[in-house]
């Protein structure tokens, strides 16, 4: 049974009513087709009004939808062959981070992603997609392997954040993410990342330094979760909706800021409604990004990647030669 989100409730109720009428028609032999048609038209309009203009908080809920495909779902669907590779060669294999080599449209690529579970049991095993340092170190190992064999890297981001646990801190969660940032900045192969669901803070960025950033239409990407922001701002974690409205975290916001390069369209109502369509849209987006990046030489590629991040920032630069606190330096 499909999971319904709170704002989908009126639509779900209407669909239940339509089903009842249909059953009534069958069982009692009374023709209700006119009523059914009316309600179906109504349902269509209602769906349009709900999904055409989703609010940030609704997008957050869709982004966290338990039936949204996971990294492995996308990877296996996109690649004819995929070999999963495990472990950071140091501490353990982190099930919240997956990766390996696949053939994407006939071409070998390295694919890495944060991995959520499919059900409660799987989620406990996957730590709800929140990686430990060894997860980020496994990701880096696979990226360096990709560099060695000169194959592009695709990363899939869907995490509430890096895991805030005692062991994670002891083993250097900060250092692990920091290392990925500095290494990805100089990785000598094309890197394309996609935010498929939740882009949660530093834990997302730890896979997110790329030549191009793709983002699904209803995904979100934020420096802090809306709930945590609300807890800090208004001392009330239940005000996530208000925080989501304030923080500009949707794909559309990030595209407008020039941070996200391409929005990947979702099937009506979200990727969980039609996986095949979502996979096909994502595959096309990856292929197009690779075409753009393949056309560049290595130096140009790294220059472009540097410039992409270098120009991100919002500040005012006083144009006059004499800043506020300054005096002319004596020519000596």
């Amino acid at each position: 049974m499909a999971t319904e989100l709170p704002f989908e409730k009126p639509l779900v109720e209407l669909r239940v009513k339509i089903d009842e009428l249909k059953r009534f028609t069958e069982e009692k032999g009374i023709d209700m087709s006119e009523e059914v048609a009316t309600l179906e038209a109504k349902a269509k309009t209602l769906a349009e009004s709900i999904y055409r203009d989703l609010k940030p908080w609704q997008k957050v809920q869709i982004a966290r939808h338990p039936e949204r495909p996971t990294a492995l779902d996308y990877i296996r669907a996109m690649c004819g062959d995929f070999i999963e590779l495990h472990g950071d060669r140091n501490f353990r294999d982190d099930p919240a981070m997956v990766g390996g080599v696949g053939l994407f449209r006939g071409r070998p690529v390295t694919l890495i992603g944060t991995q959520k579970g499919k059900d409660t049991k799987d989620n406990i095993h996957r730590n709800f997609g929140m990686a430990h340092p060894e997860g980020y170190r496994k990701a880096l190992r696979l990226m360096k392997q990709a560099e060695k064999f000169q194959r592009p890297v695709f990363t899939f981001i869907d995490t509430a954040g890096a895991y805030p646990g005692a062991g994670a801190e002891e083993r250097g969660q900060g250092e692990a993410i920091a290392r990925n940032l500095i290494e990805m900045a100089g990785l000598r192969v094309p890197v394309v990342c996609v935010v498929t669901g939740e882009g949660g803070s530093g834990g997302a960025l730890g896979l997110g330094v790329a030549d191009e950033i793709l983002m699904f239409e209803h995904a979100y990407y934020s420096v802090i979760s809306p709930e945590s922001a609300a807890a800090l701002l208004w001392k009330d974690a239940t005000q996530g909706q208000r925080a989501a409205d304030t923080m500009c975290i949707t794909a559309q916001d990030l595209k407008a800021f020039g941070i996200v390069d391409q929005i990947v369209p979702e099937p009506f109502g979200g990727v969980q409604r039609d996986r095949a369509e979502a996979v096909s849209a994502l595959s096309d987006a990856f292929a197009q990004a690779l075409d753009r990046l393949d056309a560049l030489g290595m130096d140009a590629l790294l220059e472009r990647r540097y410039d992409k991040y270098r120009k991100i920032g919002n500040y005012r630069e006083m144009t006059e030669e004499l800043p506020k606190h300054s005096v002319a330096m004596q020519e000596s």
């Binding site: 940032l181 500095i182 975290i249 941070i259 990647r305 270098r310 920032g313």
Partner: peptide, 26 residues
């Protein structure tokens, strides 16, 4: 940590500074 009031711009400064330090190291 991050300057929450600058949202994603704040997060991306981590990548920006890291990229500059990458070049410094290189």
């Amino acid at each position: 940590g991050a300057r929450m009031q600058e949202g994603i711009f704040s997060l991306m400064q981590m990548a920006k500074v890291s990229a500059a330090l990458r070049r410094h190291a290189d």
